[in-house]
Simulated scan of single mutants.
Amino acid sequence: MLYDNHNTLINDCFLEVNPSFETQTGITQVKGKTAREIDLNNEAGFLENYNRVAVMGESIHFPSLSGVQEKYK
């Protein structure tokens, strides 16, 4: 998770990606890239939802990726 000087979430960087991520999203080769680089920021609330899962350990459903899958097939 990447935060600004005010501790506001501004992006996230994929340090590791498991096969389930690729299977569920259809997006490959994201290791080392940020959500904004692969257009995940276009999905309303993606970073906030991802933060809830990654930092707080909540289990939530991500409804869609707004067509970003097509870009990475």
Results as ranks from 00 to 15, higher is better:
residue 32 G to P: 09
residue 69 Q to A: 12
residue 18 N to D: 15
residue 58 E to Y: 11
residue 66 S to G: 00
residue 64 S to F: 14
residue 27 I to D: 00
residue 61 H to D: 13
residue 29 Q to S: 15
residue 70 E to P: 00
residue 53 V to R: 10
residue 62 F to Y: 11
residue 32 G to H: 14
residue 28 T to P: 01
residue 48 E to T: 13
residue 48 E to F: 12
residue 50 Y to M: 09
residue 53 V to A: 13
residue 61 H to Q: 07
residue 37 E to K: 09
residue 46 F to N: 01
residue 14 F to K: 00
residue 25 T to S: 15
residue 32 G to E: 13
residue 8 T to N: 10
residue 26 G to T: 11
residue 2 L to Q: 15
residue 5 N to K: 14
residue 3 Y to L: 11
residue 32 G to C: 09
residue 55 V to M: 11
residue 58 E to F: 09
residue 70 E to H: 04
residue 49 N to I: 02
residue 55 V to P: 00
residue 46 F to Q: 03
residue 63 P to W: 03
residue 36 R to Q: 07
residue 35 A to H: 05
residue 43 E to K: 13
residue 56 M to F: 15
residue 27 I to M: 12
residue 42 N to H: 14
residue 71 K to F: 05
residue 28 T to I: 09
residue 68 V to P: 00
residue 57 G to S: 09
residue 62 F to G: 01
residue 58 E to A: 12
residue 38 I to C: 09
residue 26 G to C: 08
residue 45 G to C: 08
residue 56 M to L: 13
residue 25 T to R: 08
residue 27 I to Y: 02
residue 5 N to P: 02
residue 43 E to D: 07
residue 12 D to W: 02
residue 60 I to A: 07
residue 65 L to F: 05
residue 73 K to G: 00
residue 7 N to V: 03
residue 49 N to W: 04
residue 33 K to A: 05
